[in-house]
Amino acid sequence: MRPVHPLLRHALSGLAGNVVLLAGLSFLVFVGVDLLPGDPITSRLGPTATPERIAAVRAELGLDQPVLTRYGDWLAGIVHGDLGRSAAGQPVTELLSGRVGNSILLACLATACLIPLSFGFGLAAARRRGRPADRAISTGSLLLLSVPEFVVAGFLVLILAIGLRLLPAVSLVPAGSSPVRHSEVLVLPVLSLLLVGLAYATRVIRAAAAGTLRAPYVEFLRLSGQSERTILRTAVVPAVLPVAVQIWLLTGVSMIGGAVLVEKVFGYPGIGELLVTSVQTGDLAVVQALVLVLGGATLAVLLIADLAMVLLTPRLRTGGGAE
């Protein structure tokens, strides 16, 4: 019998694992939060609320049912594409429509800038290992790596919006319009996301390329008189690419999380802003739905990253070698 193609095998086992993880995650998100000390109702209504009022709100939100019953209902709804209702009674899917596109646009633009820049910086630093250019890039990325996105966004507002007056400090997008039509509002949010992601991606790509450049086979190519261009194209780039693709995908998906705060800085109309507002008003249903959706997106991207690594690594792709 012909063996299953290794890519298909990876995809199937990854998919099965992800479904299990997602089920576990939904349980943690719903039941785990319920087990936390404290009570969303009391904290929302304040300490002056009467017991009758608390009981009324509790019954209205269905919180008087046992937690496993509520979890079952919630899960059944999600399987049918219903993400539940916000505390104000609006369906979560309705709240999300329109905003999801805006947030994805932000993450995609930042990732599109990230890919060439991090590859270029990483390779340039690795080729000049230990020299001033490398030290500048490595130090700069180490410093930038730990700074929260919203702090970077604050710096950018100060420099570009207030100091130089080049760009708007607030992303004012008229209702019903798309941010694509007002491209100047996109610059600062994308730049804030890009800078932090770039620091991380550059460091990893630099490390991978520096390791490859010291490998015996690269030394052999160099000694046999191949040009630097050929060495880069035939030996270094193929070796670095699997790592780089992983990092780009991971950074891209982590931008969805980082975007939450950046969107808040600029008032950009994405899911981050909705999420923040829901947290501040204690709207647990919306937050739970969003966490599950974004967790699912993260798992999906991680699976794609896994498959990309299989595709880009000949030994894994053909199913030979140690695998």
């Binding site: 939060v33 936390l36 000390p37 404290g38 969303p40 904290s43 999420l275």
Partner: peptide
């Protein structure tokens, strides 16, 4: 955000 919604 999830934990802070439940326990602010």
């Amino acid at each position: 955000l999830l934990c802070l919604t439940a326990l602010p």
